[in-house]
């Protein structure tokens, strides 16, 4: 898993303000699971980064 600190460092180095939170994702039965999510604006677009076990999703 990509360490959280890696993502934080990359965003800080790019001087981008971001929010980091643990979000609750729901399946069809509305059972929750927590995932790390970063939200930031870059060049007038908003991006989300989710961290999964074996990849990063933008």
């Amino acid at each position: 898993m990509v360490p959280l600190s890696d993502i934080k460092n990359i965003l800080k180095e790019a001087k981008i303000k971001y929010s980091h939170s643990q979000v609750t994702c729901y399946d069809r039965n509305f059972r929750g699971a927590a995932e790390d999510m970063f939200v930031f604006k870059y060049k007038d677009r908003r991006f989300h980064i989710y961290l999964y076990d074996d990849y990063i999703c933008i």
Binding site: Y42, I56, I58
Partner: peptide, 30 residues
Amino acid sequence: ANGGLFVFCNCVELALRESSEIFPAIDILL
């Protein structure tokens, strides 16, 4: 492996393995 792109309507999701690829990938996405 575990990398890919998913396009659905106007939503594009990109799966990457390395954090160092984030900004190069975002620049291409833009």
